[in-house]
Design a binder for these strands. Sequence first.
DNA 1: CAGTGGTCTAGACCACTAT
DNA 2: TAGTGGTCTAGACCACTGT
Lengths: 248, 248
Amino acid sequence: MDADIEDALDTGGRDRPLYRQVQDRLQAALADGVWKPGEMLPTESDLGQRFQVSTGTVRQAVLALVREGLLTRRAGKGTFVARIDPSQGFDRFFRFRRDAPAADFHPQIKVLDVNTLCRAEPSILETLALAPGDEVLSIKRLQLQDETPVCFSISYFSRAMVPLLESENLSERLYPILEERFGLHVVRADELLRAVAADEEVGRLLQIDEKSPVILIERTVYTYRDRVLECRKTYGRSDKFSYKIQLR
Amino acid sequence: MDADIEDALDTGGRDRPLYRQVQDRLQAALADGVWKPGEMLPTESDLGQRFQVSTGTVRQAVLALVREGLLTRRAGKGTFVARIDPSQGFDRFFRFRRDAPAADFHPQIKVLDVNTLCRAEPSILETLALAPGDEVLSIKRLQLQDETPVCFSISYFSRAMVPLLESENLSERLYPILEERFGLHVVRADELLRAVAADEEVGRLLQIDEKSPVILIERTVYTYRDRVLECRKTYGRSDKFSYKIQLR
DNA sequence: CAGTGGTCTAGACCACTAT
DNA sequence: TAGTGGTCTAGACCACTGT
């Protein structure tokens, strides 16, 4: 299992620096599930011995993976595979504006529909890297805060990738479920934001007039090796939902 | 001028590690304009001697500032104060979707109105950290791509901070002007996105029906020491304007 | 050529965590 | 007390840049 990891690094050609090669090996090992989310990695000096490099070089590789969000470290404890923190709420992959303190923000999730589609839209199939005819699981959910609808979302998954997902409690956050039940770990997400007019369904669900402006977020979620895990469309009520970004 | 920089670091108390202290000193020096945008900093070993620390410690400090976007380094050349790259187009602080290759994206900017306000909205004054009665400069501009309006924006500046800005060519990008003429360097920006209905003015300017959905971006731009430089509202045409983010 | 940052090593000592 | 990552040092050699 660790055999690939132990193979000698390329110290001659030097097309990639050693710490990059270590980083690549570690990332591949994570993708192969050598260490599961939450588990501890070997220590710096241990990894240094395995790769036959100094701890400083291991350190450079590990810190790069920490910056990418794949690992976390805690002084005195060790280096761990990053995991979705259920207590983190919507901080990492959601950017609601919070007028109330984070602790008071506990939206209620209502599952509206779960369906297996045999003929999903071509754009969805393409994003999920599926062929025509492949089955797609769609999940429609509504989020409410204090009984008021905030946003409505439709998630699409490759049916084959998440067997029996519908037997889970889908009114919880989906990403911890994916991690715990299917070993599918969210690594990053791309989002495209637009303003659109609410159609009949969106207007009805969000309790606003048809053609009211809503924010549409098209999200693509990736796991290791740039594999697409989910694509999702979220419609947010313009008076309850805004999106915050810091640019550097 | 460099006197503060040369002062001994705190090696005893150790509330902050040395590399953080070096980072703070460098950041303060940048804020004081000790080195202007585009200029080269002393070498690692030079800085190490000044601060009486090893080059590895200087390196840690400098790399942190590179990650924050305040410095850039080029192998074989040196470390430089980051500057707004006019050829960078909208890559850094704008996130248009580009259906065309970046090279083909050259929006035309039309200046609609430049005005000095004696009584700006309280929210604007607050964001700009001004008192009631302080003068605010407002600039309304329209961006067109191939003769079609894409977005409309209103920028607000503290009048006193940018004297005679209106005598510049405001159909160019504003941030290079601020840097070159006023020594005001953009360090970071916060943005809040919402979907709203176009009012009469926005509809007319963007050539869309009143009440059509548009994306509203409220941006606050900061220079060194978290000083607010500009606040801006941008209204984007929903069919021409979308916003892309990568989350990690 | 001399000077720069990029990479890498082999240590040292510290603060934090758990037992 | 033992083990972890966090910080720091004082070198070394390399690749790249400009003269």
